[in-house]
């Protein structure tokens, strides 16, 4: 589909990939780190403030600093993706640790008593019970990810943000509005998806117990 001189579907695909892949990647990284923070008070004292500090850095600054720290090419979409991955990890490490903390001791002791080993306990008991908190964290990360992807347009990384910068240069508000509406719509669409996924993974929460 072509509009405003751009292939809109290409911009949408780029936008979704750049927003969603970092959230998934961030979740995968945050799970072991959060588990570590849950187990070790020392790890928690390092990881939680560090996450807080990383989350504090403005997106445009992080996108520019990453190539120097990690050696990625300066004008690569990777920098946007890594920035969003870092935000997701920073947001979720604490969620994961707190979700694991919130699993009642009686449940873990009962699981140990019926023969769960540490790995089985984590995957079969603790993580499933942490899903609602995790879903909440992923939803926040995902919504802000969809809006922050557009910042990449300022350093030449294509997404629906391209409609905003290009619309600014051409003084064409409708084009900018199209970018905003598209970005918000995609954010809401994926928000509903995460919500559904979280519910699907916790069938007991629908039983009305």
């Amino acid at each position: 589909m072509r509009a405003f001189g751009y292939e809109i579907d290409e911009l949408v695909v780029a936008h979704v990939l750049l927003a969603v892949v970092p959230v998934l990647l961030g979740l995968v990284v945050a799970l072991p780190l959060g588990w570590w923070a849950h187990r070790s008070p020392v790890a928690r004292r390092v990881l939680v403030p560090l996450s807080g500090a990383l989350y504090t850095i403005p997106s445009l600054a992080l996108i520019v600093v990453i190539p120097v720290v990690l050696g990625t090419p300066i004008l690569s979409p990777l920098n946007v993706g890594l920035t969003l991955t870092i935000y997701t990890v920073a947001l979720l490490v604490r969620s994961v640790a707190e979700a694991l903390d919130a699993v009642p001791d009686t449940v873990t002791t009962a699981a140990v008593a019926v023969g769960y080993r540490p790995a089985g306990l984590l995957l079969g008991v603790q993580l499933p019970l942490a899903v609602p908190v995790l879903t909440a964290g992923v939803r926040v990360a995902s919504v802000s990810s969809f809006s922050l992807v557009t910042v990449g347009a300022l350093v030449g990384i294509d997404s629906l943000g391209t409609l905003m910068t290009s619309g600014f240069e051409q003084a064409y508000p409708l084009m900018v509005a199209a970018g905003v509406v598209g970005s918000v719509a995609l954010a809401f669409l994926f928000d509903a998806l995460w919500l559904g996924l979280g519910r699907g993974l916790t069938p007991w929460s629908r039983a009305g117990v």
Binding site: V140, V143, S144, F146, S147, L148, T150, V151, A153, L154, L160, G161, M164, T165, G167, F168, A171, Y172, P173, V176, A177, G179, V180, S183, V184, A187, F188, D191
Partner: peptide, 19 residues
């Protein structure tokens, strides 16, 4: 408050300045 989180800051800035 949650819905407004989804607003892309760049787009809001540009729209306000254009208008």
């Amino acid at each position: 408050a949650n819905g407004l989180r989804a607003l892309p800051e760049l787009g809001v800035l540009v729209l306000f300045v254009l208008l």
